[in-house]
Structures are given as C-alpha cells and as structure tokens.
C-alpha cells in the first residue's frame, strides 16, 4: 500500500503526497517503508529555512519568495511549522493566512505542521517531510520554523541555506546579540523596512556579525559573509535581492564543497536521531512503560536520582544495553 502511495507521489499525485505526509507525522513502519523507497529520489531540492522571532514576517516573506522562485521557473514546496500546545496537544496553524497569493498554482504545495512536542523550532517529522517534497520533485523547499528565540536552531541542520528574519522595534541591540540565531544565519533579513528603525536594526546586525566573525572559531565558513538585506514583505520590495542572495549562497555551497559536507553532517544527525528514538522505543518495550513510570515517581520523590535510575534500568536487561 505504501509502495503504491510512493509511485503515485513520483507521478505527481498531490493527494498521495498529502496522505504520506500525515503517515510520516504519525510515524510507524508504513511511513518508514515509504521513506526508504523514496530516499533514492531525494537530494535535488535546495532546502531553504526561514526562521526568526514571532511575528517578524516569516510567512509573508515565504509568500513573496515562493512567488519569486515561480517566476524564475522553479517549483516550490513549503512546510510551515507552528507550535503544539503543551497543555492540550492541539495546535492552531495559521501560516497559510499569509500565503493566499500562492493558491491555485500546481507548481506549489503548502503543508502546515504542528511541532507535537519537539522543542527545536521544527517538528520531529519536518526533516522527513522535506525529503518527501524533495522526492516529489520540488526544486526548492521552503521551511518556516515556529517563531523562535535563540535556542531553537534545528533548522540549520535541515536547510542548506538559513534565512534569519528580524524586524525593527524588537529591542534592536539586545536582539542582535541573540547569538544562537546569528550563528546559523546564512542570510539576514530586516523585514518591515517600511517601519522606523530598520536602518538601525540593520546596522546593529552588521556590527554583531563583525564581532561574531572576529571571535569565530575555525569551524566557521570564513569565505561566506552573511549579507544583511532589508525587505518589505508586504509589498515585495527587497525580495529580489534576497532571491539573489539565496542563489549566491547555493553557488557558494557547491563551489566550496560545503554542500556535500552539510549533506554528510545532516546524514549523521539523522542517523543518530533515528537511532536514539529507536533504541529508546525498544528499551521501553522491553522493560515496560510501568517500570519507567515507577522510576519517574521515585525521582520526583527524591528517593533516587536520574543516573541511579538509568543504571538500574539498564541492568535489568541482560546485555546491559538493548537490542
């Protein structure tokens, strides 16, 4: 059944594509079988991440970027992530509101995703959904993260090119020092440039970039200086420059060999991530949910600490590990 779904996706069936994305969100063996079949068809799309604080205009910018890519002949898949409520498990996914210009274009596919408990700014399944859109033939995949602070930097691992969006009036200087986000930016955008303070924000970012460069360790890509660009996503001004920067960054990644290095890093992160989840699931299946809950109770009551609990749980399985 999943094989048939995959074949339909490769033939361009959008309903099959939507269906498989749901299966992947819910996880499980059918989703993994489908991903295995699709995997050889991936590796062609340019994955571009759009991240930044809540309300800076990420969705509005995605709308404009997608239109720009379409004018240049590229098809575009979009994944827009919004947070799941930790209390109810529900989510209000509202990014489509800003993407209405993209309706009716068969060269575009938009999917909203809830984080479902993941904390890094993306959902657990986002990386796999990106692979499905890649395999389905979209030349560019745009990934909008949840509105983030400074710690939610998963996007840097998922995307080839990361755009960090700022806006004036968010407490500029402090904002610019949010080291986590600055470090992952390949392109910095000051959106809402129609508002007062945009030039100031751009300058603050330039200064912060300069400081970051001087103290950058050997791991930093020294040859790429993230451009700081001003846009008004509401009317599209400045967006052409962002598109040029995205193309330039791609060219840089390819000519410098970084494209394949990033692919390799991503492969390793995917591998360890999947291993962690699988090992934990197997382990829990083996010792039982109840044993885990009992230890959690004991830790909460200060009768044991986490490390004692882990050692004791591992000892209950014969190998000391799991498998």
């Amino acid at each position: 059944m999943t094989v048939e779904l995959v074949l339909r996706i490769l033939e361009g069936d959008r309903r099959a594509l939507a269906r498989l994305i749901s299966l992947i969100e819910d996880d499980g063996p059918p989703a993994q079988a489908a991903l295995a079949t699709l995997y050889p068809h991936t590796g062609r799309a340019h994955v571009v991440g759009i991240t930044g604080a809540p309300g800076t205009g990420k969705s509005t910018l995605v709308n404009e970027l997608a239109k720009g890519f379409r004018q240049r002949g590229a098809t575009v898949g979009i994944v827009a992530v919004d947070p799941t409520s930790p209390f109810t498990g529900g989510a209000l996914l509202g990014d489509r509101v800003r993407m209405r210009d993209l309706a009716g274009d068969p060269g575009i596919f938009i999917r909203s995703m809830a984080t479902r408990g993941s904390l890094g700014g993306l959902a657990r399944a986002t990386g796999d959904v990106v692979k499905v859109l890649d395999a389905a033939g979209f030349a560019v995949v745009l990934v909008e993260t949840v509105g983030v602070g400074q710690a939610e930097v998963d996007i840097a691992r998922t995307a080839h090119t990361t755009i960090v969006v700022e806006a004036p009036g968010l407490g500029d200087d402090v904002q610019a020092l949010k080291a986590g986000l600055m470090e992952i930016a390949d392109i910095l955008v000051v959106n809402k440039a129609d508002r007062p303070g945009a030039a100031q924000t751009a300058r603050a970012l330039e200064v912060a970039l300069e400081l970051g460069r001087n103290s950058a360790g050997p791991g930093k890509d020294a040859a790429w200086r993230p451009p700081v660009l001003k846009t008004v996503a509401l009317d599209g001004s400045g967006v052409a420059e962002v598109l040029e920067a995205v193309a330039a960054h791609r060219a840089y990644l390819e000519s410098s060999g970084l494209w394949s290095r990033r692919e390799r890093e991503r492969a390793r992160a995917d591998l360890t991530g999947a291993l962690e989840r699988e090992l934990l699931a197997r382990f829990v299946a083996r010792v039982g949910e109840t044993a885990l809950e009992e230890w959690a109770d004991r830790i909460a009551r200060r009768e044991a600490d986490v490390y004692t609990a882990v050692r004791s749980l591992l000892m209950r399985t014969d190998s000391g590990g799991c498998g």
Binding site: R15, T88, G90, A91, G94, R96, G104, I110, S112
Partner: peptide, 29 residues
Amino acid sequence: ALRDAGMEVIYTGLRQTPEMIVEAALQED
C-alpha cells in the same frame, strides 16, 4: 475551541474561494 480540544486546526483566513478551500483541504489532508 477545536485547538483547545486537542485538534490541529488549519486556519486559512478571509476571502477564500471554494477552489482555494478544496486545495487547502487536500494539501493539509
């Protein structure tokens, strides 16, 4: 209310044509 009941709610906003609604329903499964 549906979100608070634990559902994932996709909100499309105003001025949707029937075609836009059908397309969104399909993509969002």
